[in-house]
Amino acid sequence: MALLSPFMDALRPPAFHRTWNKREPGKVVAKRAADLPDMTALPIRALMPDLPQTIWSEDALLGPTSLDEVRRQAQERAEAIDWSKIQPGRMVNLIANPHGLQLCGEAYVTMLEVIAAHVKETRGAKVRLRIAESMGHIENPDWVKIYRLEERFGDVEECPQMGAGTKVDT
């Protein structure tokens, strides 16, 4: 198999981020898998050509980089949901999953923004972002900084996924 150097170059891991607790991962990681000799990348569609095309990617080599399609599909789905149980002036907790932030990044945040705006506009509700926390997702404060979530959503906090139950009428 031929080395896919442009593809491999695009898949090089980004520089390490300084973590919320001031750790510097770049000082302790000597070599990444991408730096191993003869490492190559294989586009997943070379193995599974029937996979649907992506609607967004961080890199043009992997798919479209415009967030317009993400916005369009998020809006279309938000409009299809019955939000009538949300009364004007009520507070809505929009729960973000750390895996969405890690795996989908800007596209995930864009989807959350569309949902928040839709609920505010159509229901007259207040929306605050809550990042679900369990199993030690210590990266959550990093996501807040990396994606400027406080700037984009205002009230942002972590909340436990598990705990004492609260009955909610739905």
Rank of each mutant, 00 (worst) to 15 (best):
R18T: 14
R18H: 11
R18C: 05
R18S: 08
W20D: 12
N21V: 11
K22I: 07
R23T: 06
E24Q: 13
E24T: 01
E24D: 12
E24C: 02
P25V: 08
P25H: 07
K27E: 13
K27Y: 02
V28L: 11
V28W: 10
V29T: 05
A30C: 05
A30Q: 09
A30W: 05
A33W: 11
L36E: 13
L36F: 11
P37D: 00
M39E: 13
M39G: 00
A41H: 09
L42E: 11
L42C: 14
L42H: 13
P43Q: 03
P43T: 04
A46Q: 15
A46V: 06
P49T: 10
D50W: 05
D50L: 10
L51D: 01
P52H: 01
T54I: 07
T54V: 14
T54N: 11
W56K: 02
W56Q: 02
S57T: 08
E58D: 14
E58I: 00
D59T: 15
D59R: 15
A60G: 09
A60D: 11
G63T: 13
G63L: 12
P64F: 07
P64D: 10
T65L: 08
T65E: 11
S66M: 09
L67Q: 09
L67H: 01
L67T: 11
D68L: 05
E69R: 13
E69I: 00
V70Y: 04
R72Q: 13
Q73D: 04
Q75S: 15
E76V: 00
E76Y: 03
A78N: 08
A80W: 08
I81H: 02
D82L: 01
D82C: 02
W83F: 08
S84I: 01
I86T: 00
P88C: 02
G89F: 00
G89P: 02
G89M: 02
R90V: 04
R90N: 06
M91R: 12
M91G: 01
N93G: 10
N93M: 11
N93I: 03
L94V: 02
I95K: 04
A96E: 03
A96W: 02
P98C: 03
P98N: 00
